[in-house]
Design a binder for these strands. Structure first.
Length: 424
DNA sequence: TCTGGGGTCCTAGGACCC
DNA sequence: TCTGGGGTCCTAGGACCC
């Protein structure tokens, strides 16, 4: 008998559910949350799905939906979702310190096999009661099987499923019914390749010889085979490994054609990513900039250029990163194109304490340290847009800033947007 | 007019070493 | 006729996740 099991806690359509927590009027209604720039649907409630809305569907297409008037569309409000996610993790911490934040709406836990189902029910009740978020909980001997259990939990009224208490033969039957494409770690490519080997269900995949799978596929798929057999190969990661790379790329709210605007945008993005580097105590020695006219669905001449520049030594200060990004953007810029997508990529990050400062002059180092400290203290008090270098320090929104026509308030993270209760 | 934004890991192949 | 055998490191690309 195993003494510990994996549990996965998964919020039902997280973004939409959070919006419903703060706005009772939209509970029970079809709700769709849109991507950045209000481009396409990223999350929707079951009610919206029932109306035929699909994940990834562009918003402009849905404006002609026959039942458009019933559907609630909202811009994404990542600050709010991130804050609710942190609160959920705090609740899990009250159950066990052995949890892993897997994504904004999912966490894995290690829980004792004894009373595991009761624990799962308690977690669900606590998150539902304290935060108002609906979750499902899957429990099993491996992470991959816990994900299977969570999918099953969705169909059940109690929203909890523990595969460890199902008898083995019945588990086999469950896996035989489970499409291989829905297995965690099996994407569209592998699904197609597996189909060629007549493997269409999780049960069939689990019965393949692990050695053969390793030779014909990869060690990743081999692990999945073992995990489906109930042998845990993917451990819980309580402390997340340090970031290896950081990316900040955005589709712009409006295409940009002017060189200055392209350079300003790259510089602003670099400052945002520099702040993120500092929060993670990481530093970057290489800056890559990417300019693109968007996808093939746009008219106009396409352009898609990358450039990179090594810094003298790794840093997370705003000034050198912004300068490098601006220089690269200027170099990559070509007139006559419409730029709709700009990105900064920082690969090969190192720990902040590894930076020696050997290659920076004392004067520059002093300037960078003072500037960075000033920027961090001002933004922590007055918000991200309060101060910055160049265009980033201008408070009015630039035209290319993200389109968010229907964003809800940042109820939990901004004093000026707090939820207000009115007495009748 | 309008189609997201992050991440991770693995593998194959090239370059280079002795 | 017949042209070694290991290693390491790096990069690009593929595949996956939410």
């Amino acid at each position: 008998m195993r003494d510990e099991l994996f549990a996965i806690v998964d919020v039902d359509s997280m973004y939409a559910s959070v919006e419903q927590v703060f706005d009772p009027r939209i509970r029970g209604r079809p709700v769709c949350v849109l991507s950045n720039n209000d481009g396409c649907v990223v999350t929707m409630t079951a009610e919206a799905k029932a109306l035929g809305v699909e994940r990834g569907q562009p918003w402009f297409q849905l404006r002609n939906h026959p039942r458009r008037a019933e559907i609630v569309f909202l811009s994404s409000n990542y600050g709010l979702y991130g804050d609710m996610s942190a609160r959920m993790l705090a609740i899990l911490q009250s159950v066990t310190p052995r949890w892993e934040a897997y994504s904004i709406d999912e966490a894995f836990l290690r829980i004792p096999a004894e009373g595991a189902t009761a624990t799962a029910v308690r977690i669900r009740e606590r998150i539902g009661g304290w935060l108002g978020l609906p979750v499902k909980v899957g429990v099993a001997p491996s992470k991959t099987l816990a994900k299977v259990a969570a999918k099953r939990a969705k169909q059940r009224t109690e929203r909890v499923d523990n595969l460890a208490e199902v008898e083995p033969r019945r588990v086999q039957a469950i896996l035989d019914e489970f499409p291989v494409a829905d297995v965690w770690g099996i994407g569209p490519r592998l699904t197609a390749r597996l189909a060629a080997h007549e493997v269409g269900s999780a049960g069939q995949l689990a019965r393949l010889d692990p050695g053969w799978v390793r030779r014909n596929y990869t060690v990743v798929v081999e692990r999945t085979v073992r995990e489906l057999r109930g042998i845990s190969c993917i451990p819980l990661e309580c402390s997340p490994p340090p970031r290896r790379q950081m990316v900040h790329c955005r589709a712009l709210g409006k295409p940009v054609t002017d060189e200055h605007e392209v350079v300003d945008t790259a510089s602003t993005f670099a400052q945002r990513i520099a702040a993120k580097l500092r929060r993670h105590h990481r530093a970057a020695g290489l800056v890559q900039v990417w300019l693109s006219s968007g996808g093939s669905y746009y008219s106009g001449a396409p352009i898609d250029v990358h450039g990179s520049q090594a810094l003298l030594e790794p840093t997370n200060a705003a000034r050198p990163l912004a300068l490098a990004a601006a220089r690269l953007a200027r170099r990559l810029y070509q007139p006559g194109y419409q730029y709709r997508r700009i990105g900064i990529i920082l690969p090969d990050l190192v720990a902040e304490h590894q930076v020696t400062g050997m290659w920076t002059t004392a004067k520059n180092r002093t300037i960078d340290e003072a500037l960075t400290a000033a920027i961090d203290s001002v933004t922590s008090r007055y918000g991200k847009a309060a101060i910055g270098l160049g265009r980033a320090g201008v408070r009015t929104r630039a035209e290319w800033e993200m389109k968010q026509q229907v964003r809800s308030p940042a109820y939990t993270t901004r004093w000026d947007e707090l939820l207000v209760a009115h007495a009748r």
